[in-house]
Design a protein around this nucleic acid. Structure first.
Lengths: 141, 141
DNA sequence: CCATACTTGACTATTTTAGTCAGGTTTATA
DNA sequence: TATAAACCTGACTAAAATAGTCAAGTATGG
């Protein structure tokens, strides 16, 4: 059970961005350098974040990205949704009327995995970008 | 972020086993048929469960496996440990004195991932096999 | 003594991840 | 209005992890 780096990077980059947000757009190049994430990969990630209206892009020289909402209103769950980082505990279709794996009944542990999924998602729904900026203030270099 | 089938199968198989446990050893063949898990794969999984003293094997005709402790005392966390299902949210070494990714400081979101890991592990520590048997009683066929 | 059941370890196809690479387009500003 | 800085897009791929399979055992109860 592990987090993929796409989800992790998305959050790292947004926290980075959120810290400078009120001043100017932040370029991906800067985030790339500060966070040690490949620029090309960041572009993929930010493309999704923009489509999901988490960030806005500012083109041209001195351009970059800014948050599209207040940091308080951006929850982890929004970020993960945007980059397709999903919590998957079962293989069986969630909403199928049938049971799991073609059986008539639910698999023995179906409820457990649902519960686990909810438990994790609750965490994601609570945490906002603002919380992260506050909690994790890294000393400037 | 997803659960691997090794961990899921281990739990499914143990719940199946726990339901018949007081009567006779349960053969992997039966579990395989009931749960739709390949016998060979189950053998790999049970080998680890046995080494970690979650189950005992009973050889010979009418043999199989029985739980090595009371269902109440077997927590999800024990099962996942046994089959190497680990919760991994960070890539950086957990106990390294240095920061993450060779930097001097912790990465911006390090605390967050630690918190998430703990949140998930708490869930695993609470749930016992007994809980699962009670919660998920599947109607016999 | 042998069928049943467990045991072990090597092997492999598939899928996913974590990017790279190439070739754009847009826009601020000098 | 030229151009450099920045974003945008999609195809491609190496490496790792996953989810098993396969083969060849060993132990034991009846």
């Amino acid at each position: 059970m592990k987090l993929t780096s796409k989800g992790r990077y998305a959050v790292m980059a947004l926290v980075d961005l959120a810290r400078f947000n009120n001043i100017n757009p932040v370029s991906l190049r800067d985030i790339s350098l500060r966070q040690g994430i490949s620029l090309d990969y960041l572009e993929q990630i930010f493309s999704k974040l923009r489509k999901n209206e988490i960030v806005q892009s500012v083109r041209g020289i001195q351009g970059g990205y800014i948050l599209n909402k207040k940091a308080k209103e951006i929850k982890l769950t929004n970020i993960f949704d945007a980059v397709d980082e999903k919590v998957k505990t079962v293989q069986c279709k969630k909403d199928s009327k049938k049971g799991c794996n073609g059986k008539a009944t639910k698999c023995l542990t179906h409820n457990l995995w649902d519960e686990l999924e909810n438990h994790i998602n609750d965490f994601f729904k609570e945490k906002s970008l603002e919380d992260l900026v506050k909690d994790n203030a890294e000393r400037r270099v």
